[in-house]
Write a protein that binds this DNA or RNA. Structure first.
Length: 277
DNA sequence: TAACAGGAAGTAC
DNA sequence: GTACTTCCTGTT
């Protein structure tokens, strides 16, 4: 158990921001997550955080995972003063960060995400891990499941994948796991490519289109210039940026701002539907 | 309580 | 431009 003070980070906001699907709320200010085969529990109170790991593990895994090297305050301050929409989005989701997640997990998770909703994506990912991943025990004997590697998915086969309620996406997952196994999808080299190249290579895979490729680039490869255009962001751009989002003004990190906009839009929807609008 | 309709971080064809 | 799988959510 270690303690850290971290600015510009809100676990509740990150958990609900649709970029990760394995972060769970345990109680007020308490969250758990599984990533890179490890289980972590976190408690947040303002800028004070307790992590259920050693200082060593924090330095090796989690500091990078939570993107602590990046100054999100600076990013938020860089927003155009006259862009009232973006100012509001950034103020609302002030604790959003882009997590640096595992590439393979992002490929499969965002394949599942297409034409789907977040609560179902979470359930699908959880079930995939439980049925195909590896069972492990974390702190206090908590049982958790690692995200299945490509070989395990290939071994499980369509027979198992077909029982997970993934819909038509099951075949995408199976085929891409096969591609990773036989080498026509090379994760290692993908990690060394620039954004354009990585995006093109990802899109050549069955089941990965432009939007999913952008999500994988942003969340799995940390190409922060990637700007996934999903239904929400499309709607936002149409309403607030008729000339297109000014990505040029935010060279190299438009994707981070996209995440604030996405979260802002998503929360507004859930709040308004709760009010019966 | 249970059935029902609408819709969901898109892609392949 | 349209079909696609299944499930989640809100409504009746």
């Amino acid at each position: 158990m270690i303690q850290k003070k971290i600015k510009d980070m809100d676990l509740a906001q990150i958990a609900d921001s649709g970029q990760c699907f394995r972060m769970e709320r345990l109680g007020a200010g308490y969250y758990s997550l599984v990533a890179f085969g490890k289980y972590l529990e976190i408690h947040q109170e303002g800028e004070e955080f307790l992590f259920s790991c050693t200082e060593e593990e924090f330095g090796e895994v989690w500091a990078e995972y939570f993107d602590l090297e990046t100054d999100y305050g600076k990013i938020k301050d860089s927003v155009d003063e006259e862009d009232s929409y973006l100012k509001a989005a950034v103020a609302y989701g002030h604790g959003i960060r882009i997590l640096r997640q595992d590439l393979w997990e992002m490929i499969i998770s965002f394949l599942i995400s297409q034409n789907n909703n977040i609560s179902r994506i979470r359930n699908s990912v959880a079930l995939l891990c439980k049925r195909v991943g590896e069972e492990k025990k974390g702190i206090n004997g908590v049982v958790y499941y690692t995200f299945p590697q490509a070989d395990a998915i290939v071994q499980a086969g369509m027979e198992i994948l077909g029982t997970l309620g993934l819909g038509y996406r099951d075949k995408y997952i199976f085929k891409i796991a096969q591609a990773a196994e036989e080498g026509s999808l090379d994760l290692e080299s993908l990690g060394h490519r620039d954004y354009e190249t990585a995006h093109r290579e990802l899109m050549s895979q069955y089941g990965i289109g432009r939007k999913v490729a952008d999500c994988i680039c942003l969340f799995g490869l940390y190409h922060t210039e990637a700007f996934p255009l999903d239904t929400h962001v499309k709607k936002i751009v149409e309403a607030h940026y008729p000339q297109g989002f000014p990505a040029g003004r935010y060279q190299g990190y438009a994707g981070i701002l996209q995440q604030y906009m996405f979260y802002y839009d998503l929360q507004k929807i859930s709040v308004s539907s709760k009010r019966g609008e």
